[in-house]
Amino acid sequence: MAIIVNLDVMLAKRKMKSKELAEIIGITTANLSILKSGKAKAIRFSTLEAICKALDCQPSDILEYVED
């Protein structure tokens, strides 16, 4: 896929665990795992907003476009 999710990189930078983030943004760890692994087909603005707020970052820090 052309869109890469760099959520694990941001989590490592902020020294935060997936479980913690899932609890803060209010989604299940299973869904967060889908997002991290790149299996997700779409992301809601509300989820993106919550992730950015929790990790104190910009959407571009989490999502990256790479040409195939």
Partner: peptide, 8 residues
């Protein structure tokens, strides 16, 4: 449905 299920 699969798209909806994989929308986080």
């Amino acid at each position: 449905k699969s798209e909806n299920d994989l929308t986080i």
